[in-house]
Design a protein around this nucleic acid. Structure first.
Length: 478
DNA sequence: AAAAAAC
């Protein structure tokens, strides 16, 4: 919701939502929330969408993308009444696809608020939850559906929903929607849609390869680019700390404590890593929860909710939480692992510094990650400050293999993924009983920053993505 | 090389 509450960023102070010819019901919803001025992406996207044009929209997170497509969609649906009478005079006319369930929920909340004073109905469908309540709502009829791909197709197969009347398609976080894992489902969905429709694609990052692939789904698209492509959020201060691989966990804990336990999201590259780190932090007395794809949907939503409410201090997440999630006032993101895809770095650190606020993005890395760091710096075209850890003392853990004393993973899926360690008959290494450094009184401002020598501007990424290129030729055009 | 997304 706060994505639109960004008046300081408005393109021109004189532009108002009222200038776009939006219906009074929409303007009322906006004024309900105190929104008067559009953000730059909204100021650009709304008129273009209202013209019926396809859009490829590149904008950083926290710039108001969601309202940028939601508001004109609602306007278009209001202006052009449906001619269909089925089902229940509410055929699906706009479809919004997202790569994660939590993002679908968030977008749906926004759409519902913007359409609150209109007769348009919307709902969200996603996996991990009972089909029945979703089915009931779909059968009663909705004009706008926000969905994750798999569950949407499930509903299609069960004839709970027909996509034959969809006039507008949105792909949120389009670069993710177009990656290898999602593309087959996406293609199936697109094949169910009318050929004549309006397509909107939004993402913070559009690599050249994804841009090309996206273009194959769009008709004469208008490109909207608010910040420079692949730019990191302007107000995010980035620091990287090079540490020994075995010390990453302790350093992350140190960084969390050095920030006096203000709320922070910690990103791990793996589900197991996220669970372990979360448990380890909890054992150290830090209120933490993990969110990743091996958790039940209830657990995922509970963790996110607890974090938003401030009930937990640390959310340890995989990239399920990297994109689009709007957590207001998040001051800090920590990368426990550097992401394999440089673009995911941009998405991750975009969780902080949202809606004009400042934020810190701290990353730990070791020798073997130098290449990943180089890729990231190349993508964002800047050298990230190398930080020095002052006052950090490693916590002696006995076994050199990282986390001593970790218990066997609770969830079966997690233990299955690591048979070598968890299925062995040898007892797990025991954590040595030493006086943890973090039980000693903390001395603030021990984390110092050191400017790194600039290495000059990097050239744009030219790493070929053959798989995507192959798909470009291999998949039929919708 | 990993994560996400349907049961």
């Amino acid at each position: 919701m706060s994505e639109t509450n960004n008046n300081e960023n408005s393109a021109a102070p004189t532009v108002r939502f009222a200038d776009f010819g939006l219906a009074p019901e929409i303007l009322r919803a906006l004024s309900d929330q105190g929104y008067v001025h559009p953000t730059p992406i909204q100021a650009q996207a709304i008129p273009v969408v209202l013209q019926g044009r396809d859009v490829m929209g590149a904008a950083q997170t926290g710039t108001g993308k969601t309202a940028g497509f939601s508001l004109p969609i609602i306007q278009m649906l209001l202006a052009h009444a449906s001619t269909s009478m089925s089902p229940a005079r509410h055929p699906v006319r706009a479809l919004i696809l997202t790569p994660t369930r939590e993002l679908a929920v968030q977008v749906a909340e926004n759409v519902k608020a913007y359409a609150a004073h209109t007769p348009l109905r919307s709902t969200v469908v996603f996996g991990g939850m009972d089909m029945k309540p979703q089915t009931e709502i779909l059968r009663r009829g909705v004009e706008i559906v926000i969905a994750t791909p798999g569950r949407l197709l499930d509903h299609v197969e069960q004839k709970n929903i027909s996509l034959g009347q969809v006039q507008m398609l949105v792909m949120d976080e389009a670069d993710r929607m177009l990656d290898m894992g999602f593309l087959p489902d996406l293609q199936r969905i697109i094949n169910l849609l009318p050929k004549k429709r309006q397509n909107l694609m939004f993402s913070a990052t559009f690599s050249p390869e994804i841009k090309k692939l996206a273009g194959s789904f769009l008709t004469n698209p208008t490109t909207i680019e608010v910040a420079r492509s692949n730019a990191t959020a302007d107000k995010v201060t980035q620091v990287v700390y090079k540490v020994a691989e075995e010390q990453k966990r302790d350093v992350v804990e140190f960084l969390i404590r050095s920030r006096e336990l203000k709320q922070v999201i910690v990103f791990s590259n793996t589900k197991i890593g996220a669970s372990r780190l979360s448990r380890s932090l909890e054992q150290a007395g830090i209120k933490a929860s993990a969110i990743h794809g091996d958790k039940t949907q209830q657990e995922r939503m509970a963790a996110l909710e607890a974090f938003k409410k401030g009930e937990i201090e640390v959310l340890v997440a995989t990239d399920v939480a990297a994109r689009g999630l709007d957590i207001s006032d998040l001051p800090c993101v920590i990368n426990y692992d550097l992401p394999y895809n440089a673009e995911d770095y941009v998405h991750r650190i975009g969780r902080t510094g949202r809606a004009g606020a400042s934020g810190d993005a701290l990353s730990v890395y070791s020798d073997k990650d130098e290449r990943l760091l180089a890729d990231i710096e190349k993508l964002i075209k800047q050298t990230i400050t190398r930080g020095e850890l002052t006052g950090f003392a490693p916590y002696a853990r006995g076994a050199s293999a990282g986390y001593g004393g970790e218990r066997r993973a609770r969830r079966s899926g997690e233990s299955e993924s690591r048979p070598s360690r968890t299925s062995s008959s040898a007892p797990p290494p025991r954590r040595e009983k030493v006086d943890p450094w973090f039980l000693k009184p903390y001395e603030p401002s021990t984390v110092t920053r050191k400017e790194a020598a600039p290495t000059g501007p990097a050239s744009p990424s030219s790493k070929p993505k053959q798989k995507v290129a192959a798909l470009l030729g291999g998949l039929p055009k919708p």
